[in-house]
């Protein structure tokens, strides 16, 4: 299976209200083993998946938000967040977890994984993919 395709996971749901966010993350983690060219997009309520300060003790559900910070270890470092979705919800990059990855080619320099992109930029990025998985 030597084919490398560009996979984009489009996340549009908030965490906890439904299971889509969590089960989507499970696909991303399993998919990492296939060594494809993976990117994640967070749009609409999907941006809430990356929110800082999630505390689920009161609802008795597992807080899976720390898993996002492990994505860099899986070589998943293209995380696109749509600017318009953030703005519509009164959020900025500061409200999201700081996700980083280490660049092997630059002496493991720590780099930001999240890129805030406009709708138009994201539309172009989507056009460049081979496979789009939507959750």
């Amino acid at each position: 299976m030597s084919v490398t395709k560009k996979f984009l996971y489009v996340n549009r749901r908030a965490p906890y209200g439904t299971i889509y966010a969590w089960e989507s993350l499970e696909v991303v983690l399993i998919g990492a083993a296939f060594e494809q060219d993976v990117a994640l997009a967070f749009v609409d309520d999907g941006v809430y998946q990356l929110a800082k300060g999630q505390d689920t003790k009161g609802i008795g559900m597992k807080n899976f938000s720390p898993t996002y910070s492990a994505l860099g270890d899986y070589d998943i470092n293209k995380i696109y967040v749509e600017k318009e979705s953030l703005e519509a919800r009164g959020l900025t990059l500061e409200d999201l977890q700081h996700l980083v990855w280490e660049d092997e080619d630059e002496d493991w320099a720590e780099k930001d994984s999240i890129q805030v992109v406009t709708s138009a930029e994201l539309a172009d990025l989507m056009e460049q993919q081979d496979v789009v998985l939507s959750f």
Partner: peptide
């Protein structure tokens, strides 16, 4: 739901 708006916003010209 807002899906149609999201689609219109995030679909490229020519799609």
């Amino acid at each position: 739901k807002d899906s149609m708006n999201s689609c219109l916003r995030l679909s490229a010209d020519g799609s």
